[in-house]
Design a protein around this nucleic acid. Structure first.
Lengths: 160, 160
DNA sequence: ATCCTGACTATGGATTTCCATAGTCAGGAA
DNA sequence: TTCCTGACTATGGAAATCCATAGTCAGGAT
């Protein structure tokens, strides 16, 4: 294994992951279509109901259920908007909580592109200025890169 | 939206994400327990069947199905091992393909810790040397950080 | 007043995921 | 030879997710 473990975590037989943040995240993002909805909202700027339906490739019932769930979970907000000559409609806009899922979505995209699209991924993420490819990685507070071998998982200090 | 879009992608009504790498990744990682199995294997060094069962909190049948699926998908390999005084058994070890999912898992953990654990996450990821917190972010080829506003999504060049 | 459209809601059924419980199977230990 | 243990497999059923199809509903357009 490459990531180091604090000594109290080192033997997995002696403890269990309670209140795991990953399990909690999957509670919200469990259904497959949830992340695909967020993909559309975060990466491609989709806001409207029927575009979610057609682009995610899911039925209206499923899209409605997911959008409602994601809205209740606070990842999207339902905002009224009005195009001239149309009545008021609603669009689904990512909140900060929703936007902060972008690294998850891009990390998934990077992994899928690398391992599931041997002919090359259809889309790539680049630096807007230099057009060089951008990847997901680990960063220290000062913005310098860390590799997986540099990482350690430890219990957070909950005392004081 | 913060990420920029290539002009041919700008209007989501004019195209559809075909062969999406994210959808492909979710095909492999669809069931909730898949990612929890990978969490154990990648972050906590779990290798053995019954530890996956107890730590993920899933039945043996589900664990067996997931381990088989993840093995067939090439994220884990089933390797024989032998402890003295025991017969040969098998353990599940992440492959490179599996290990490359670590950013996804850590990104999910970071998001879950931030938004679902207001009392503070039970575990944190730090730099092994400095013990400073490490976060998931975006990196240019030279290892310098990029923010979301610096990113652009564009079709990959498939010609030539 | 009627039509139309975007945004849903409702119903029924197939499939997947999951749990609980029980059984199997290969060897080392006694 | 029998027991035990770790690693599964089998069965039955509950629940979640999904699809296909059809219906509703609000209001601007005509």
């Amino acid at each position: 294994m490459t990531i180091k473990l604090d000594h109290v975590l080192a033997d997995p037989r002696t403890w269990r992951p309670t209140e795991c943040a990953i399990a909690g995240a999957l509670e919200v993002l469990g259904p497959r279509s949830s992340l695909l909805i967020m993909r559309e909202a975060l990466l491609f700027g989709v806001r409207r109901f029927d575009l979610f339906v057609t682009r995610v490739g899911v039925t209206e019932a499923v899209a409605a259920a997911r959008l409602k769930h994601l809205t209740e979970a606070g990842l999207l907000v339902r905002q009224p908007y009005k195009e001239p000559g149309s009545r008021t409609r609603y669009e689904y806009v990512p909140t900060q909580k929703g936007r902060d899922l972008t690294p998850v979505v891009l990390a998934l995209m990077e992994w899928g592109s690398k391992y599931l699209k041997p002919d090359g991924a259809p889309l790539s993420v680049v630096d807007d200025a230099s057009r060089e490819p951008v990847r997901v990685g680990y960063l220290a507070p000062d913005g310098t890169e860390r590799r997986e071998e540099d990482l350690r998982i430890q219990p957070s200090r909950r005392d004081r």
